[in-house]
Amino acid sequence: MKKDEAQSLDRRAFLCKSGFGLGAAGAVAAMVAREAGATETELATGGKGYTETAHVRKYYELARF
């Protein structure tokens, strides 16, 4: 195995087996997924709800035609 592959596996194991990966990870993922889903719906319907928490967005190049 190449050195960087081994490093990448070590890092994966380290992060996923930390307290942030175990136990709570699924519940946090579900929370965030729900949020993202709501955002898409609100975007689609022109709703403003998501802007209460989103401080940043993708930069759109306005000068591009």
Partner: peptide, 27 residues
């Protein structure tokens, strides 16, 4: 929230990091 990318395409450990950063950002 800035999670618009498709999380299926990034590694498990990176999806995890996205979730925690997003939660901290939200709170």
């Amino acid at each position: 929230m800035a999670t618009g990318g498709s999380l299926e395409e990034i590694a498990e450990e990176d999806a995890l990091r996205v979730h925690w950063y997003s939660l901290l950002g939200k709170l």
